[in-house]
């Protein structure tokens, strides 16, 4: 059972309930958000990237980062065996050190949800499934909803949906909004509970920071529980400035509505050093309230092993190598 707070479509307070009343009002709102100065945003992200995280702070951050990982396999070549192996890795990231935290979730395609669920039975590790014709999102709405419902029925705790970037970029914000609302609905389980919804923007395709800010607010207003940068399937995935911008969006959203939303950068975060930079951004933009796997996640695969090698270094004082961590 997740402890992540749920967001509900159109339920946002703070005077925002009428924002999505019409295409025009939604557009006015999104285009009325403060602009983003790209140079300034990138400079701030770069400055935070110079923080030097050492000794006890590093040990804390490595364990925190491990506990925030959505350990991911999203390949056409995925098999039951591969997914089981990944789940085993998520449960015991470092077999040689039982004190190593478990990852937050295992992220798979819908047809692998049941396999992952079974493999993770009895653990708090969530099963996240991508859905809605991931990664392109180019399918009819009923197909996307069926995709989602299928994953939920198979036991997915979390759904990582992609937005229709074509609709967004052509200014059909209401279509995107409605689709998120519908997918959120499809996350409902028979017992009245709901899978948590992460909304992927594919920021590499949205191109501008202004678009990322608008997409963030659009998704939060439509009921996203998490906002997520990327599928990991395009040339440009998560970057520090994009993530910083999304952190600012959830900060402002909570200030206005009281609802806390999570953030998940995904794709391209491969090293401990990368992960540290993201955690510093979370720490200095959002503070303690977001410093847990409930509110911040890394969508990553190779990151885990680098974190484990760095963790071994801190524990043993010796530099580790790739042969001393497992390859799954």
């Amino acid at each position: 059972m997740s402890t992540v707070a749920a967001n509900a479509p159109g339920a946002a307070g703070g005077g925002l309930s009428d924002v999505a009343a019409s295409e025009a009002s939604l557009r006015r709102f999104l285009h009325g958000l403060p602009g983003v100065d790209a140079v300034g945003l990138e400079a701030r992200a770069a400055t935070l990237g110079t923080r030097s995280i050492k000794t006890s702070a590093k040990a804390y951050a490595i364990d925190l980062a491990i506990s925030m990982i959505d350990l991911t396999t999203l390949e056409g070549a995925d098999t039951v065996g591969k997914v089981r192996a990944l789940c085993a890795k998520g449960r015991h990231p470092d077999p040689g050190d039982p004190g190593t935290p478990q990852v937050a979730a295992i992220c798979v395609y819908p047809d692998m949800v049941a396999t992952a669920k079974a493999a993770l039975a009895g653990t708090p590790i969530q099963v996240a499934s991508v859905a809605t014709a991931f990664p392109a999102g180019r399918a009819a709405l009923p197909v996307k909803l069926a995709d989602t419902a299928d994953a939920v029925a198979a036991g997915a705790d979390e759904i990582d949906m992609v937005i229709d970037r074509g609709a967004f970029l052509s200014g059909r914000y209401m279509d995107v909004f409605a689709e998120i609302v519908a997918v959120k609905q499809a996350c409902l389980r028979a017992d009245g509970t709901s899978a948590h919804l992460k909304v992927i923007f594919e920021t590499g395709e949205l191109q501008t920071y202004d678009n990322v800010r608008r997409a963030s607010w659009l998704a939060m207003l439509a009921g996203a529980d998490f906002i997520k940068t990327s599928t990991g399937k395009v040339a440009v995935n998560a970057t520090p400035p994009v993530t910083l911008l999304m952190l600012e969006a959830v900060r402002d959203f909570r200030a206005q509505t009281g609802v806390q939303i999570g953030v998940k950068p995904a794709g391209g975060i491969k090293t401990t050093k990368d992960a540290m930079k993201y955690l510093v951004m979370v720490n200095e933009t959002l503070g303690d309230d977001w410093l847990s796997g409930h509110w911040f996640r890394f969508g990553a695969s190779s990151l885990l092993n680098d974190l484990l090698m760095q963790r071994q270094k801190l524990t043993t004082g010796r530099y580790s190598g790739p042969d001393y961590v497992t390859v799954d």
Partner: peptide, 13 residues
């Protein structure tokens, strides 16, 4: 957990 918005009261400032 219910689908309804969790009633959190977070101070703005």
């Amino acid at each position: 957990m219910a689908k309804n918005k969790k009633t959190e009261t977070t101070t703005v400032t």
